[in-house]
Amino acid sequence: MNLEHWSKLWHLFIMFLKIGPVTFGGGYAMIPVIEQEVVEKRKWLESKDVADVFAVAGSVPGAIAINSATFIGYRIAGVAGAIAATIGILLPTFCIVLAFSIFFLGMKDNPKVEAAFISIRATIVALIVYAAYKTGKTAIIDKASLLLVLTTVALMYFTHNQIHPILLILGGAIAGIVIIGIRTRLGRKTILHEKEQVYDYMI
């Protein structure tokens, strides 16, 4: 590795270090910042490439913000670039959450904090319902997908959470392939999303 390569890695690391805290607004809040840095300022990638990266980042497991950083780092500077970008985007939020962790461990037994958390717990239930609502809007597109959703809830409820979610998720992928396979054989089409949907808070 020559000096130029090291300097590129360093710039990648610093760029994503600065973007890290921006991910507060969701993975896609990064797009304009990345466009400006990577496309306009440094001319490492074209605007089209950045759009491609964000389109794929939602299909790989994991958070969109981190996946996009890894992807862009990889495209600019190979494996080392991917690692530099990933560490860069993780480091600021890692430190912030660590500070939160220490702060809340110290405050745990404060009666005011305890009272606050009793209310926050109900808000978290609402947040999860909201996540279900948002995912459901893109997941439930016909009767078969609605049936899959209801079956999952029923299975979890009646087996008292005894089925491992990983098995269900794998089963879901197989069910999707089977359902759409049968439909295609019958000559019916299913309108599938062109791209993965954008969840503004779901990073």
Partner: peptide, 23 residues
């Protein structure tokens, strides 16, 4: 890939609904 995501998304929605119930 697209058809597996069709199934995946539905299962994940179901899992999230059940989690909300449990919480």
């Amino acid at each position: 890939v697209k058809s597996s995501f069709y199934g995946l998304r539905a299962i994940i929605t179901g899992l999230i609904i059940y989690t909300a119930y449990m919480f």
